[in-house]
Design a protein around this nucleic acid. Structure first.
Lengths: 345, 345
DNA sequence: GCTTTTCACGTGAGCGTTAATGAGAGGACT
DNA sequence: AGTCCTCTCATTAACGCTCACGTGAAAAGC
């Protein structure tokens, strides 16, 4: 039904007494077609409403002009920004985006890779789940370029574009910790991924630089809601519950770093309810610079992530690798910017 | 290169001394294949790492198992939630999602429709830009089912799934306005879309019900940043700039409704800087129930949108229409829930 | 005048898959 | 024994497009 309706190359060709091939060449803008017939073909194609069949095209050409984008959770604002940037850059280059969501589940990730293989996408941008790292090997074997986004699985020989999380956190903590700061906490996500590891590493390095004994520091894991579906993965409530249990008026950290600004919301409340104040009693450093951060009371010092640049750079890198499959592996870590506000004094 | 590598049906068939067709039927689980050869085929296909070519399949079958998702801005948290829900529901039904972003630009929307036609997707879920409403006609002509998401363009005969914005705002304003409330403002987006119109209509209806003269009310348009790319479309700064200009200590509204919680952030600040307080001097009603709303001081009364349900329902509707193209048009408006917190007393 | 080149287009094949049809082997039946 | 099935598989033809050729006519060259 739908098929019989569709205008094909032959329809245009028959209407003009030409061959399908000529019409194809004319519309493709190739040589070996006179300008007069090209104009005729274009006009007739437009008149009939001809739309090329991308499947037929990619079946013979081997290219699809589609890029796979594998994301763990589109409701995560950072990933949402990545999606926007990636889509825009792909669109500018004439590529379409096939979106696969993994919800940080290995099973979904495997299915996603399978889908990408079936489609024979020209390239893949992916946030890896990292529980098992060989999931992506199928793409490499099929010679489909993969650029890892945000999270890096080393040793796979895959391109990577992300953020220099370790430096971002490390430098920020050093900058933000005043002379009186002795006890420092990090509220982390409970995920086994490279970004979390990098934040912890940066955190530890900062403590060393500040001469703070690791015994005075604490890395707390907030349970991550991966299966919550179409909602934000970070719940202020979870951070609040954790912090409220541990912080008392007489026993509290001097500085709390949160893995994201949403956790900071919970920490704010926990501190407030103890009768303590930010930043006089406890300093708070967020992560992500979400739009509300500047509007909290006190305004939250946080780290701005160049999601837009990362997405754009990742697409550029992918397109370059599609063009030159044999160029050497690239690993880019973009710097993040500390936005100092009132929560750190 | 990539093509010669790929394992095809023939490869599996040749290896077993069978025909490609038999292998196809065996893997498709059809009849007319003995169980013994089916097992052989499955084993060999797995051993060789056979992956079906979706383009070849859809070229002959006319189906793609792909659904197009047209979104104006993935960084908008509401749309992000929609994307998550839609993707998940599609995945559950065996469909993949092709993501097209329009940035509320008519040109992009036309290109998106063109892409969807080229791919011959089985169906489309879309947030329409609404500047020109005939952009989607091409899909209807190609008999591709379209379900409109969130924004409704009436008169096109397209299915619709969204939220009952008019009732949500109308009922909420009535509920939230106390006896002393005389002057009511609505801070709206500057977009010509049905959701904005519905909010304004609900606002006006509430004023009538409350017996508030329209002269005492005000609908303010906050400039919308559509071209800002991969960022949130709603900037608290913009709402702040507008509100700060109009609100003074002696001349202020009793109740402000904002088109989203981010605008409420700006309004909070503007009110605070006048030396006024929420809710005693000015009540504030947000929209969207973004995760930070509960953690503001005072906690923001707002309207929770069932984005997850909307996305899920939209996919269900689309799949049903794909199965039965001739069923009558459906228009679903899901109720939104008022979440009463401190900002309205 | 003829051959040679150039240009504009047509022909045929094939991309990998599925649907329709055909064909051979084996068993059940009269 | 011959006929008719049934089961299993092969053969053929699409789907719409592009690529490597082939071909004819006009233009160019001597």
């Amino acid at each position: 039904m739908a098929r019989s309706q569709r205008v094909t190359l032959r329809d245009v060709a028959d209407r003009l007494g030409l061959s399908a091939n000529t019409v194809s060449r004319a519309l493709a803008g190739k040589d070996q077609v006179s300008e007069s017939t090209r104009a005729l073909v274009s006009a007739e194609a437009k008149r009939l409403g001809y739309v090329p069949n991308s499947h037929a095209r990619s079946l013979v050409s081997g290219r699809t002009m589609v890029v796979g984008l594998v994301i763990t959770n589109p409701s995560n604002p950072f990933y949402a920004a990545l999606i926007s940037a990636v889509e825009r850059q792909c669109r500018a280059a004439g590529y379409s985006v096939l979106l696969l969501v993994t919800e940080d589940s290995e099973e979904n990730e495997e299915r996603a890779v399978q889908q990408l293989l079936r489609f024979g996408v020209d390239g893949v941008l992916g946030v890896a789940t990292e529980f098992r790292s060989d999931v992506w090997d199928g793409l490499s074997e099929a010679k489909i370029p993969v650029v890892q986004l945000s999270r890096d699985i080393p040793g796979r020989g895959l391109d990577f574009v992300g953020i220099d999380v370790e430096s971002a956190i490390g430098d920020a903590v050093v900058r933000v910790a005043g002379p009186g700061v002795r006890r420092v906490w990090l509220l982390e996500e409970d995920l086994r991924v490279s970004t979390v590891a990098a934040r912890i590493a940066g955190f530890r390095r900062a403590l060393d630089e500040l001469g703070i004994a690791h015994g005075h520091s604490l890395v707390l894991k907030v349970p991550t809601r991966r299966t919550s579906g179409a909602t934000l993965p970070w719940r202020p409530d979870d951070a609040y519950a954790l912090a409220a249990n541990l912080i008392t008026r007489d026993n509290h950290p001097d500085l709390v770093i949160t893995a994201n600004d949403y956790f900071a919301l919970g920490v704010y409340r926990a501190i407030r309810e103890c009768g303590l104040t930010v930043p006089d009693d406890v300093r708070v450093l967020g992560y992500g610079d979400h739009p509300f951060a500047a509007y909290l009371q006190p305004a939250l010092t946080t780290i701005r992530l160049p999601a837009d640049e990362a997405g754009t750079a990742a697409v550029d890198l992918l397109l370059r690798r599609i063009a030159e499959p044999d160029r050497s592996r690239t690993s880019t870590r973009l710097p993040a910017e500390l936005i100092e506000r009132q929560s750190t004094g």
